[in-house]
Structures are given as structure tokens and as C-alpha cells.
Design a protein around this nucleic acid. Structure first.
Lengths: 199, 199
DNA sequence: AGGAAAGTCGAGTAATTGCTCGGATATCTT
DNA sequence: AAGATATCCGAGCAATTACTCGACTTTCCT
């Protein structure tokens, strides 16, 4: 759903040097997260972010060139969290699939509303290079982990499997599916599809 | 993701009596659809809707009490389209599942960008009673059609199956999965999951 | 200590947007 | 034809929002 024609800035206009400035940047990103969790995307405006973060609006614009840059920073922060969990899974391990699913579930349920809102926002955002690279990393890692259980797969089948898992985990995160046996449900869906396709 | 505290209005403030007024209402809804397709949710504002619809802003507010009411009307229009297709499938038919999947795919690909944007918007919208009823109808019909092939299912499993189908069809609508063999892919995923669960 | 660099502040501005209102035009009814 | 009703118009208001700028404060360095 690309519609914003991707502006040039997006990168911090000034990088923080002192530790209190680093804390300020973190507070701003966390402020955005809290607003999204509490009131959704429509309530996310720069004045509110600054207020919730406990800094002035001028300070915010010292580090982030525009509103979208704050969002991108938040998405990077969340992606890094998931990426770390995925990286911690030993390549080719017997329980790789289970570990991957468990990591996704943990990530989704750590801050369910935030994850749900970001999931939506990511679709309509032109991300910067770094954030896009992280998305690719996540996709590639997931694909590798799938391969250890199901062997080599067509790219479309790998994407479909990841898709299925995300749909189920997201819905459970919204509270529409029970959290118990969630991992089993996801694995049943993934392997049900892949076993059907791989003949 | 409920955050807008659901206002009272949402219903047309005046119902059109003359045929040209009915055409005006339809033009307004279609104008909103065109803006969403062309430029996404951020570009959807009432002034633009009126302009694209070829009516004045005052006329828009004659029939729709606020911006959201136009969106709800659009969602109703699109849901009615899908609902008609589902209703046309004979209950308990041998090919009921295939017909259902085909209908979903047709609906998604008729106006892919519109379907994708509305899918997102529906989540963060407090719908009116009528639109909510249509959503339930679609869910119930889908569940019934699933039952003719797979027998009685737990509600969570029905939801999961529908979820899986929607995730795949939506992604294909976004152009990330090929349209060819899409129906087979969806059916493989659904039956893969349900056969795994139903033991 | 004291100057420079980094950081913070918040009132204010320009633009956008949802929506109103009073008046003009079209259609219906008799 | 002529009133009554329905429909349409669009300038403009009030509120919101993204963002700037110049002044003030804190931290760093020697």
C-alpha cells in the first residue's frame, strides 16, 4: 500500500551525544508507543508525543525531522527485539520451528496492542533502509528455520507459511483466540499447509 | 483495536427521497472509495470526498453526519457485495468450499487496493449495528460452508480457518503472492489445518 | 573558571480539516 | 402556476496539527 512518496529525511537530524540526550530520544520513542497503545494511530501527534515523553516539542524536532521518523524509530526498536529472539535460536536445531513460533508469540503478547497497531502502520509506511533490512532479516531467518523441518520450499510457500502463522498469532494477540495451545495451533496450521503442498 | 469511543450518530442524518439525491449519496460513497484506492486513508478528508464525488461539501453533510458515516456506508456497500456472492452458494453443496474461496478471491481482486485499505480501516472503526450484523452474517455463512466439508468444528477452529484464508487472499491481493493456483493454495491451507486439528 | 558545544524549552505560525449555515436552485404536488 | 418541499451550494469558522525559531540551561573540556 505505498502511497507516501518517500521523503528524503527520515534519518535523525542530529545524533544525540550526551547520555541524557540518548535518554530523551528513548523517551520520545516510548512516548509514541504508549500513545499508540492507549489511543491508536489517530491520536498520535507530535505535540502529544512530546508531552507524554516529558520533553518539549522543540526537543523532539531536534532529533527527529518529522513525525514519521519517530514512528520508524519505534518500528526499528520493536523489530530489533524480535530479531534478537530469532537470532538466539540455534540454526538447524531440532526444535527450531517450535522456538520460532514461541518467540513470535512472546513478542506479540509482550505488548499486544502495540504489536497490533504497528502491524497495521507498517503496511502504509515507506520505511528507511535500516528498518527494511530488518524486515528482510526476519523473513530470511524464519525461512531458514522452516527449512530445517520441512526441507527446501518454494518462496511462495515459505511466505504463505509465515503469513498463516502471523495471522493466527495476531488474532490471538487481539484476544479473539485463546492463548492456550496457541503454539500448537500455529504449528498445526503451518505443517498442515506445508505437508499438503510438499508432495 | 477499539479506541474511538463510538459516537451516537453514524446513521444518515436525512434519507434521500428523490432519485437524484440517491445518486448523490452513491457518488459520495464512490468518491470515498476512489480516494482510498488512489491515495490511502491519510488522504481521505471530507472536502476531497465532496470534490471527487462532484458535489459540494454542504451536500455531503446533508446526508452523512460526519466523515466516519461515509466510511461506514462504503464498508456496508462492499460487504453487501460479498454477502450476495456467499448467499448464492447452495447450502450443503459438494463444491461449497471451493465456491466460497472463489467468491472471496473474486471480491478481493475486483478492487484490490480498496479491499486492502478497508480491511485495515475496519479494524479501527466502531461500526454501526447494520454493518456489524453483516460481518456476523459473513462469518456465520463461512462457518456453515466449512461444516459441509469438514463436519462440525469448534468455534476457534472455524475462526482460524477463515483467518488463514483471509490472510492468503489478502496478501495475493497486494500482489505478494501469484494469483494463479490461489484457490488451491487457500484450500490446501484450510484443509491442512482442519485435517490436522480434527482427529 | 569560563568558554564552547550540546541540549532544552515553548510560544507562535502556517496549513489543513471537519463541519455549519444561510441562501439559491430544482422537483413535486395541486 | 405557485407554493411547498427537497436538494444543493460554497464561503468561512473553529479546532487541530506539524513544525520553526530564538532564547535559556546544562554538560564538557582545558
Amino acid at each position: 500500500m505505498p502511497q507516501t512518496p518517500s521523503q528524503t529525511p527520515v534519518e535523525p537530524r542530529k545524533i544525540p551525544r550526551q547520555s541524557r540526550a540518548i535518554a530523551t530520544c528513548a523517551a520520545i520513542v516510548e512516548g509514541a508507543a504508549r500513545i499508540l497503545e492507549a489511543s491508536g494511530p489517530e491520536a498520535l501527534n507530535t505535540n502529544a508525543i512530546a508531552e507524554v515523553a516529558g520533553v518539549s516539542i522543540g526537543t523532539l524536532y531536534q532529533y527527529y525531522p518529522d513525525k514519521q521518523a519517530v514512528l520508524v524509530a519505534l518500528i526499528r526498536r520493536e523489530r530489533a527485539l524480535l530479531l534478537d529472539e530469532l537470532h538466539a535460536i540455534p540454526h538447524g536445531a531440532a526444535q527450531a520451528l517450535e522456538a520460532m513460533v514461541a518467540a513470535s508469540i512472546r513478542h506479540q503478547f509482550a505488548r499486544p496492542r502495540l504489536a497490533a497497531v504497528l502491524e497495521i502502520l507498517e503496511k502504509s509506511l515507506s520505511l528507511d533502509a535500516e528498518a527494511a533490512r530488518m524486515a528482510e532479516d526476519i523473513a530470511r531467518l524464519s525461512a531458514d528455520l522452516l527449512a530445517t523441518r520441512f526441507g527446501p520450499l518454494a518462496p511462495d510457500d515459505r511466505l504463505t507459511a509465515v503469513l498463516i502463522a502471523r495471522a493466527i498469532v495476531n488474532t490471538a494477540g487481539d484476544g479473539l483466540l485463546p492463548q492456550e495451545h496457541l503454539a500448537e495451533r500455529v504449528i498445526a496450521a503451518i505443517s498442515g499447509y506445508l505437508d499438503n503442498v510438499r508432495r
